[in-house]
Structures are given as C-alpha cells and as structure tokens.
Amino acid sequence: MRTVLPADNEHMIETRNLVKAVDTSEGVLTILKGISIHIAAGEAVAIIGASGSGKSTLLGLMAGLDGSSSGEILLDGYELSELDEEQRAILRGQLVGFVFQSFQLLPSLTALENVMLPIELKGDAQAREKAVSLLERVGLEERWHHYPNQLSGGEQQRVAIARAFATKARILFADEPTGNLDTATGSKVVDLLFELNREYATTLVLVTHDDRLASRCDRKLQLVAGELVSDESTEEAASA
C-alpha cells in the first residue's frame, strides 16, 4: 500500500491506525481496521468503496460525529479522542461544514433560514446578508423563501451547499452529495461544490461510490471491507 504524504502542506486531517468496532448480536464487528491517512489543507480527497465498506463511518469519525474504538484522529491538530462531545461540537462549529446525501435541511425553516442558521449560531450579525449572497451564488435567489419540501432535490442540495460554506468552514465533509440526484442535476451540483471549494480553499473530504465524481478530487482513498486498499492521486491513477 502506498501512502502519499503531502510535501509542504501541514496535515489538516490525520488518522493513525483508526479502528471502529461495534458489538452486534453475533459478536464484535470491526468496521474500520487500522486506517492511517493524511489529508493536507486545501486538498480534495475522495473516499470510495462499495456499500458497507466503511466509507461513511470513516467520514463520521473524521468529522467528530462519532468516537473511534482505538487509534487517533487529528483535526487541524486537535486530537479528537481527547475531546468530549461538547468540545467536539464546538470544534465542528468552528471548523467543519457538511453536505449530506439526504440534504438534511430543517423542514420548518425556509431556504434562507436554513443557510442563516449556522451563521447565526456563530453570533454573526450579518447572517441575513451573507445567506442571501450565498443563495445568489448557488442560483436560488428567487427561491429563498421556499421551504425544503417546496424545492426539488437539486435545489435542496444547492441550499445545503450554500449552508455548508456559510461559515467559511475550513473542512467540508460531503457524504454522497449526488446520491439522491439524477445524473444531470448531480453533475450541476458537483460543479457548484468544486467551484465553491476552490473559491473558499476548503479541505474537502468526499464520500462516494461514483468513480467519475471521485476522479474530480486530488486523491482517491479506496476502502474494501474496512481496510484502506489504495491511496493514490487522481493524476497518478489517470496516468497509470
């Protein structure tokens, strides 16, 4: 297994021998088996693998949404296992943005309010202006007052992307962002995601089983049954 270490950049995300095991009725099930990776600041990394390979689990652990069984995760230098859930929440609020397969917009808030939410939670008085400008950026200026159930899937995901960039998060975790969208819509959403990612110089971790989407990232990490089987830059992969 080859590991590509970033030459100059500091590691924004680093995992060392990460293990996640859960108790089931049939005994202990190990979902992740000693994953060690480095992701540099500003890098776009895709985690690929079949269903059940542990992609989303890895993403959840790296984002501090869940605790590991053993091993270490460093997020911008913070050792997550040393933080409790309250501290991890604060860290997420300061550092991390999310885009989910199922959009995860709050159904009782309008598109605008959904985007405003994380900005407001940070105590920013300019929440409304910032949210409006982001919605314009994702092309939804006409639909800001609509509720999620009044928007199409593509529109909902665009709202979610606007929300993810609203607080200028330094790391963006995207879990199957096109999983619920048709190919054409998915492709537009992905264009938008990468565009904004470049604009904001965000570190992107993207979970997908779509190889074409993965190829748009700088690196691809492939998981098979909880093990990291390959870690290669997309250029290398393309030239190989």
Binding site: E86, R92, L121, T167
Partner: peptide
C-alpha cells in the same frame, strides 16, 4: 443532529 453538526452543544 443537524444543530449538533453545526456546533451546538448539548
């Protein structure tokens, strides 16, 4: 869950 991902503590 969403609020927590945005950094809301318990």
């Amino acid at each position: 869950a969403i609020l927590k991902t945005f950094g809301c503590t318990s």
